[in-house]
Design a protein around this nucleic acid. Structure first.
Lengths: 159, 159
DNA sequence: CGTTGACTTAGAGCACACTCTAAGCTATAC
DNA sequence: GTATAGCTTAGAGTGTGCTCTAAGTCAACG
């Protein structure tokens, strides 16, 4: 006797609806059933679910996770494929973090922009600001341009 | 004469379809039309679009961006609201990055797991591994548990 | 003056990830 | 033996963000 679907829902914060959806998508082929046909989650199933949750929450689509789980069901012959899944996904996550970090800088620039505008009472103080994005910036791959904050010195004193 | 929609698409990597979709959603109320009724993007419109792209790519939903744009159209009276948009969004992005960083550690653990399993020829070497997630881990808010890598020493030597 | 190409619109369709409903089964409690 | 609670299923519906189609307008070129 392991856990029922609602106990797992309670433990994980994943709704029973979503757990059944994941099962239907082939993400939980390892979960057994009891005599009544109800799902019976073992401890080892929870470990699988933890890995699935990690991949899911870090942005891997359901279909790719399914591929990984399928490989897991095949046993040791797929160890290399599964390693590659994580090595590839690591790169994806790191790139996503780098991109977010770049946007964070832009957000800080805008915070500076609005704080100074509020000081002066109008955004017109920034009217000559000529903030043109590079090709890389539009595509989120790199943000080499001067920040708003660097231009702070060029503003006149508030009245 | 500014830029046509396809010139902007070319410059930004955002398709003309998507630009029209954004316009329909109220994200581009500042874009004027020429005599023929075609959109005519000015430099200042591109700056708006850069800000919208930053918010979009860092995870803000279209509806929230629309609220921000609406406030922008109202002028200086909404400077404080717009500052708050960016300050709130900054927190959201930082939390997302912290969560990704935690999942990255889990991914590294799994890379270690598969690398050692490949060394030994079987994942059975990790069979006694008892990796139970805490409540926080399931919810992605904190990852305080011991990593797989810490347990490296407890493995027997490969045969 | 007709063809071409780039634009316009409304609205349909799609992909993804849930989220929920309806109908039904089963084990236990009274 | 029947009420209740908790599970089961298939499948419909929702929200988000595009993505595309169809039908049409318009300006310039030859």
């Amino acid at each position: 006797m392991g856990y029922t679907i609602s106990q797992v829902a309670e433990m994980t914060g994943i709704t029973a609806h979503t757990l059944r959806f994941y099962d239907k998508q082939g993400l939980l082929p390892f979960v057994d059933r009891n005599k009544a046909g109800n799902r019976d989650f073992k401890e080892s199933d929870l470990e699988w679910l933890a890995v699935i949750t990690c991949l899911k929450k870090s942005g891997m689509p359901v279909k790719k996770i399914r591929q990984y789980v399928d490989w897991g069901m095949e046993g040791d012959v797929t160890l290399n494929q599964r390693l590659e899944v994580f090595e590839t996904h690591k790169k994806v996550v790191m790139e996503k973090m780098a991109e977010l970090d770049n946007y964070l800088k832009k957000i800080d620039d805008k915070i500076w922009y609005y704080k100074t505008a509020i000081d002066y009472g109008t955004a017109a103080i920034h009217s000559q600001t000529n903030c043109v994005w590079t090709d890389d910036e539009w595509r989120g791959t790199s943000f080499p341009s001067q920040s708003y904050a660097d231009r702070s010195a060029s503003l006149p004193a508030p009245t």
